[in-house]
Simulated assay, not measured.
Amino acid sequence: MEVVEDIVIVGAGIAGLATAVALHRMGYKGLVLESSPSLRVTGFAFLTWTNAWKALDAIGIGDSLRAQHDKLITGEHELRCTRRRELLEALAGELPSNSIRFSSKIVSIEESGYLKRLHFADGSTLKTKVLIGCDGVNSVVAKWLGLSKPVSTGRYAVRGLASFKERHGFESKFFQLFGEGTRSGFVPCDERTVYWFFTWTPSPQEKEIEENPAKTKEFVLSKLGHAPENIKNVVENTELDGMTWAPLRFRPPWELLWGNISKDNVCVAGDAFHPMTPDIAQGACSALEDAVVLARCLAEAFSHKSSGKGEKEEEEFFMRIKIALKKFANERKWRGFELISTAYMIGSIQQSNGKIMTWLRDKMLAPFLAGLLLKRADFDCGKLSIS
């Protein structure tokens, strides 16, 4: 007999694991399917703003992560640079041992009454009452919902994590540099690791260095120009396998308003929902917000016990699920629209190489852009409780 799961979450990234933990906290199990043989830790680290810490506190792992990462700003806002590996391992550690199924690559999704049947590459199948796509920018679930593929900005990013045997000596702050059409940032995670990124619009010749990590490092160093030596030392101290190269893509924000974020008992979250450029460091943060809101909506639907197992009760249950996922989509689509739009606008301004725009950016727009970023980070997704 074919196995039927209550909730299946596709993707063991930040959105998927955080959603599973949030559901677990509320007494519901979500089975997480991951196509890779283990947790994927590409990306190394990310800036974790106030809104993300509120979400992490809601699911119960905020304090343990704070102890491992330095605070970068003072005042009412909270900013730290969180290592992706630590976050994923912390989330996975909160789940029962049978909650994650690795090497489960979905090849197709089909209707099966009120259920969804998943077909896997190894020939096996699985049915689920709720399907949540947290499978990133190339989401198979988003494709099933009819959402288009994220589009390229033409910009690329190199990211790296440098580890030092001794203290690196950086201040606990975010360093940002601008060049001619380039932007780079350097931020300590703790006293011995520094996360960095470099973004630019490459020429066809420069794209060729993607296949050669040594040339990539050499290229980044050549573009840092008159940067302080301690900044250059961070790139020089980065191991070749400690760097990644990726195009910057986003989902056109208007698609969140008229596209299918949810349909019946299927929805998407995280990068499968609202992929955005990293210019306001809100991709992972908003994925954590999604997890809390989605778990809250689903828990409300599951909390209503059916009086029986007949056709009418089954129909009522799936109607509650449909309403819950629609509620999630309606609550989150404007937040996603706002973040995608803001990130794209800020990225375009900050990476400008025109003399007039550069002058405006440096002399007049900097305070406005900083205020806009902080405003987007001043968001509370709420607690894990239902009315």
Rank of each mutant, 00 (worst) to 15 (best):
V4L: 15
I7S: 07
I7H: 08
G16H: 00
L17N: 05
A18M: 07
V21P: 03
L23P: 12
H24N: 15
Y28P: 04
G30T: 08
L33K: 07
L33T: 08
P37Y: 15
V41T: 07
F46P: 04
T50V: 01
A52Q: 10
L56T: 00
D57S: 08
I59N: 02
I59W: 01
I61F: 00
G62E: 04
L65K: 03
L65W: 01
R66L: 10
I73M: 07
R80L: 06
T82G: 00
T82P: 01
R85W: 04
L87S: 06
A90M: 14
E94L: 04
E94M: 06
S104C: 12
S104D: 10
S112R: 14
G113H: 02
Y114R: 13
L118P: 03
G123R: 12
S124L: 05
D135S: 09
V137E: 12
N138F: 12
N138Y: 15
V140D: 13
A142V: 13
A142F: 12
L147V: 03
K149M: 11
V151M: 12
T153P: 13
V158F: 14
A162P: 00
F164D: 00
K165T: 01
S172V: 08
S172E: 12
F174R: 11
F175S: 11
L177F: 09
L177V: 04
F178N: 09
R183T: 08
P188S: 06
C189P: 09
W196M: 09
F198N: 09
I209C: 08
E211Q: 15
N212T: 06
K217V: 13
F219K: 03
F219R: 03
V220C: 11
L221I: 04
K223T: 01
V234M: 07
T238P: 01
E239W: 00
L240C: 02
F250N: 03
L256E: 09
G259N: 04
I261K: 02
K263F: 10
K263W: 10
V268I: 13
A269Y: 15
G270I: 10
G270E: 04
G270K: 05
I280E: 05
Q282F: 13
Q282C: 13
A287R: 06
L288T: 01
V293M: 05
V293K: 06
R296N: 05
R296H: 04
C297G: 06
L298H: 08
L298S: 06
E300M: 15
A301S: 13
F302I: 03
E316Q: 02
M319Q: 14
L325H: 03
K326M: 14
E331T: 11
R332I: 00
S341Q: 09
T342S: 15
I346T: 03
Q350V: 14
Q351V: 06
W359T: 06
L369G: 09
A370H: 15
G371C: 02
D380F: 14
C381Y: 14
G382W: 08
I386V: 15
